[in-house]
Simulated assay, not measured.
Amino acid sequence: MSEHIIFYDIASQQPLRTFAPNPWKTRQALNLKGVPYRTEWLEMPDIAPLREKLGVPANRTLPDGTPYHTLPVIQDLSTGEIIGDSFEIALYLDRVYPERAPLFRPLTTGLTAAFNAQVDGLFTKFAVLNDQMPITDIAKEVFVQRHGAKSWDDMKFPDEDREGLFVSFEAALGELAKAYKHTGGTTDHVWRAGGTDKAQAQRPPPGQEEAGPFLDGDAPVYSDFIVGAWLKMSKASLRQEDWQRVSSWQGGLWQRVLDGLEKWSEIK
């Protein structure tokens, strides 16, 4: 089949692959829809010129109010449409290609948007743990300049503070895990932050050990890709021993989620 869509993604270190969460949301959405596409990889300094050339406004704002251009962007060659936001891309794909697998179940757009914001906020809070992010040297220079740091290493989170953050991360993911078993009331199992001793590690309540891999039903929708995208980011960007730790939490739920979404994670 001839390509319909150009998908602009952030260039990683070699081998080229998606690592950032929002491009992962779009890649998985495109793979589920089955619309033919190809990827064009961009270094970070080239993102703003590309979006400006295509007439796509900035979709983020830096703390000082400066507009910030990022990816993904899709260019649909069959319709001429250019979309520059991962959530809007998903809505577009369902609207223009309704005959293909749905990304949103009926009347769930608002709920999905709220869920997207919640999950983005949860993982962003702990993003400083991702000190193995496979970004290129050019991208590292951009981040160093943007944050006024002396070097990339100076931006890393102190090792002595990491353990406390992992304790909080486990508890936060425990609360998210409730969505996979359709629990979440204030009186049920509470994922409290434990200590560093193995005896204090969090355990799923009875019946939740095999939750997942999809939030609802036997097939994923966009909400599943939201969580999967951030897990993909964590797997690519955490230290290997730290990812093994995270993937084992909540009875191994997060590894099951990634395994369940693997079918829609192809890099094209």
Rank of each mutant, 00 (worst) to 15 (best):
G121R: 07
E43V: 04
Q250H: 04
P206C: 09
W230C: 00
K125D: 11
E266N: 11
K150I: 02
V142F: 12
G121L: 11
Y180A: 00
I89N: 02
G84M: 08
M133A: 05
N31G: 12
W24K: 06
P36L: 01
V35N: 11
W24D: 10
K33C: 03
A11Y: 05
L77T: 02
M1D: 10
Q255T: 07
L258N: 12
T26N: 04
W249K: 05
F214W: 11
K235Q: 13
P57K: 13
G80L: 03
G252D: 12
Q202W: 01
D159E: 15
Q202R: 05
R51W: 12
S151Q: 04
R60E: 10
F123Q: 08
N31D: 15
A199G: 07
A172G: 10
S2F: 09
S12M: 09
S151W: 05
E170P: 06
G251D: 08
I74Q: 06
D137Q: 10
Y68F: 13
A219D: 13
M133I: 03
S78V: 02
W41V: 07
A127V: 00
V227W: 01
F126G: 01
V227E: 01
F115V: 07
G164H: 11
V119P: 00
I138V: 14
A101G: 08
L253K: 04
R162Y: 02
V167I: 06
R245P: 00
L173Q: 10
K178F: 03
P67A: 11
W264Y: 12
R38T: 09
G121Q: 09
A139H: 12
A219G: 11
E3T: 13
E175H: 06
G217V: 09
I135D: 03
I82F: 01
I83G: 03
D153L: 01
S237L: 05
V142Y: 14
L103H: 03
P134H: 03
K25I: 01
Q13F: 07
P15V: 11
H189Q: 07
K53S: 15
S78L: 06
L30D: 15
S12D: 05
S248I: 00
Q244T: 02
I83C: 08
G65E: 11
D9Q: 13
R60V: 07
R162F: 10
M44D: 08
F123G: 04
L77I: 01
G212F: 04
I83E: 07
Q14S: 13
Q118H: 13
S12N: 02
D216F: 08
K140Y: 03
A171L: 10
K25S: 00
G84F: 06
A211F: 06
M233T: 14
M155S: 07
N22V: 04
A48W: 08
P57F: 09
L253R: 04
L215T: 02
S237E: 15
P204D: 00
W264T: 03
P204H: 00
L253E: 09
E160C: 05
G260H: 07
R17S: 14
L91M: 14
N22H: 14
L16I: 09
A127S: 06
M155Q: 10
K232R: 12
E175D: 13
K33S: 04
F166L: 15
I267M: 14
V221W: 01
F7E: 01
S237P: 03
M233P: 01
